[in-house]
Simulated scan of single mutants.
Amino acid sequence: MDLTVYGPLRSATGEKRVSVDPAEETVAGVIDAFVDAYPRAESHLVDDDGALRPSVRVTVDGERAALDDDCPADAEVALFPAMRGGNGA
Rank of each mutant, 00 (worst) to 15 (best):
A28S: 09
V77P: 01
V18A: 04
E25I: 03
G88K: 10
F34C: 05
V30C: 09
A73Q: 14
M83L: 15
S19D: 14
D21H: 10
A23L: 14
E63S: 12
A82T: 07
A12S: 15
D68R: 09
A73R: 15
D49P: 06
V18T: 08
E63Y: 06
E25S: 14
D48H: 09
E25W: 01
F34L: 11
D68M: 07
A73W: 12
V5K: 00
L45R: 04
T13C: 02
D69P: 04
G50R: 14
L52M: 12
S55N: 08
V27M: 07
L45N: 00
D49N: 15
A65C: 12
A28D: 11
R10T: 02
D47P: 06
N87W: 14
I31Q: 10
T13Y: 09
T4E: 01
A37E: 03
V56E: 11
A41I: 02
R10N: 01
P39H: 09
G50C: 05
G88R: 08
R10M: 02
T26K: 02
L45D: 08
V5T: 01
A65P: 03
R17K: 10
A37Y: 00
A37P: 13
V35T: 02
R53H: 02
D69M: 10
P72K: 11
M83Q: 12
D49R: 11
E63H: 14
A75H: 06
V35C: 03
S19Q: 15
A28E: 13
T4A: 09
N87F: 15
A65N: 05
D61T: 00
L52W: 01
E25D: 13
K16M: 11
V60F: 07
A12D: 03
P81Q: 08
D68G: 12
T13I: 08
A33G: 05
R64K: 10
V77I: 15
G88C: 06
L52P: 13
D21C: 07
V60M: 09
I31W: 00
Y6N: 11
A78S: 12
D48F: 03
R10I: 14
A28Y: 02
F80N: 12
D69T: 04
R40K: 10
D61S: 06
Y38P: 10
P72G: 12
D32L: 09
T13N: 06
A75R: 10
G50F: 10
G50T: 09
V60P: 08
K16E: 06
T13F: 01
G29C: 04
S11Q: 11
M1G: 05
K16D: 00
D47I: 02
E63F: 11
F80R: 05
V30N: 00
V58Y: 03
R10K: 15
G29E: 04
A33W: 07
F34D: 01
Y38W: 01
D48G: 14
T59G: 08
D70Y: 05
G85S: 03
R64V: 12
E42M: 12
D68P: 07
V77D: 02
V18K: 00
A33R: 07
A78W: 05
T4G: 04
A28P: 04
D61C: 12
D2I: 09
D69C: 11
V20K: 06
V60E: 02
Y38K: 13
G86D: 08
V27C: 05
V58G: 02
L52A: 09
E76Y: 01
D49V: 14
D61A: 08
A89F: 14
A41W: 03
R64A: 14
D68L: 12
F80K: 04
